[in-house]
Computed example of a mutant assay.
Amino acid sequence: MRIGIVCPYSWDVPGGVQFHIRDLAEHLIALGHEVSVLAPADDETPLPRYVVSAGRAVPVPYNGSVARLNFGFLSAARVRRWLHDGTFDVIHIHEPASPSLGLLTCWAAQGPIVATFHTSNPRSRAMIAAYPILQAALEKISARIAVSEYARRTLVEHLGGDAVVIPNGVDVDFFAGAEPRPEWGTPAAERDTGGTIGFIGRIDEPRKGLPVLMRALPSILRARPDARLLVAGRGDEEEAVAALPAGMRERVEFLGMVSDEDKARLLRSVDLYVAPNTGGESFGIILVEAMSAGAPVLGSDLDAFVQVLDRGAAGEIFANEDAEALAGAAVRLLGDPARRAELRERGSAHVRRFDWSTVGADILAVYETVTDGAASVATDDRPGLRQRFGLARS
């Protein structure tokens, strides 16, 4: 099958959607399909052979963050050329409602279109206001996927229609097989008084929750003075620790941006992974990666996180933005090796449903449904088919 995938966000700025698209493309290629990904990218960005640059992106406020998007006449021309050269059997657009390549592709493409909706935002005034502009493009979509029930709810409430829920995928074995790094673990002599906490995310993006974790850290260190926090991600490191007492700042180690390999090794090394995100999350891929690596997870009680953590069975949950609740749970878990071992076991079993062997097969089933004759699918009256895949009416 010839598959064209559209990435809305700049390829050179790491993010969950980009990682999902990269891994999906490589999974499909490994199965023998021909895949081309169209994505914004700076001229100097090294790209995999399957990625086609749509040109430089610009920063745009979107979904409580700043997304680097690509939109305009030049982008539209590149979309049309990519579609012409690709002669795809199916087009898979991510975030078609954002002002980016997905919307341009919806306008220009012919034939079967699958769309994945990642955004979870129950009160998006921008999406409501833009609906009259989006409607003509969205009506061309043959099938809709939402990465979580909360992304599906956002789609239904703002744009109408429905979608099948297929979560983001993870190469579980890649994380499970990573080698821990001794310097990122806890020395045997400090296991009763310390513990290593991990955090991965953009430091200067408040919704990723690092400020909440920093507010919790003094209480954690008073109870466990040898504990330390490892932070991986880009941002202003000095500003991140500015509110900490001076004597505690040395207990925070910033690793900067890390490779995929080092991310997996970090997650394999820590005693506890904390996800203090405060909002705007439709799924929580880092939770799945952490559980895949065997890290016990403590996450805020965002709806999407609660679902990924199997309502607390696969990881523990604390009240969103409550630093003292975070600190209390972290201290308890760091002091309870048996509970952490239980979470590792439950998390490792739970994440198998997110492995690409399952997620990839579900996405391919959607592709096959829309390519097996759009006309026959549009008139198929088999119970549940249209509802399952969120099929557009002709």
Rank of each mutant, 00 (worst) to 15 (best):
R68N: 06
N121G: 06
N277A: 13
L28R: 14
G102E: 09
P46E: 14
A349H: 14
I93Y: 08
F175C: 05
P296Q: 13
A338W: 00
T379W: 06
D89K: 12
S376W: 08
S357V: 10
P59M: 10
S120H: 11
M214T: 11
P61Q: 15
I203L: 01
P296H: 14
R68G: 00
L326V: 09
R125W: 07
A216T: 08
A97I: 02
T196A: 12
I166D: 03
L385P: 00
D355R: 09
V17C: 03
D322N: 15
D271A: 11
A25H: 04
I91D: 08
G235F: 04
G198D: 03
N320R: 14
F354M: 08
N277L: 02
H94A: 05
A319H: 13
V359A: 03
S259Q: 08
D271H: 08
N70Q: 13
A129L: 12
V58T: 11
V60N: 05
A143N: 10
L28S: 06
A338L: 03
R152H: 07
L24I: 05
G185Y: 04
G198V: 07
M214I: 15
A109T: 11
V172G: 07
P187S: 12
V114M: 11
R344C: 00
P383D: 15
V231A: 07
I317P: 00
D171Q: 04
R393P: 00
V370A: 14
E368R: 13
E26S: 06
P276A: 15
Y131I: 07
D362A: 13
A325P: 00
R152G: 02
V306G: 06
M291K: 13
Q110V: 01
A97N: 12
P383E: 15
A136F: 02
T358L: 01
A365Q: 10
P112W: 15
G102Y: 11
H118C: 04
Y367T: 10
A295R: 11
A163G: 01
R22N: 01
A189Q: 13
G209C: 06
T154L: 00
R181V: 12
D43L: 01
R80S: 03
P206L: 06
A108L: 04
Y367R: 11
L385R: 15
P46T: 15
G209L: 04
G384F: 09
S259N: 03
P182G: 06
D162W: 03
E368Q: 12
V212Q: 07
Y50F: 11
F19Y: 10
E183S: 10
G347I: 09
L326I: 13
L267D: 10
A41Y: 05
A188D: 11
R144N: 14
T379N: 01
A327M: 02
R224D: 03
F174W: 12
E253L: 06
L230G: 01
F175A: 09
V274L: 07
F117H: 12
L221G: 04
P225T: 05
E149S: 11
P206V: 02
F354D: 04
V60K: 07
L302N: 08
A137L: 05
A240F: 00
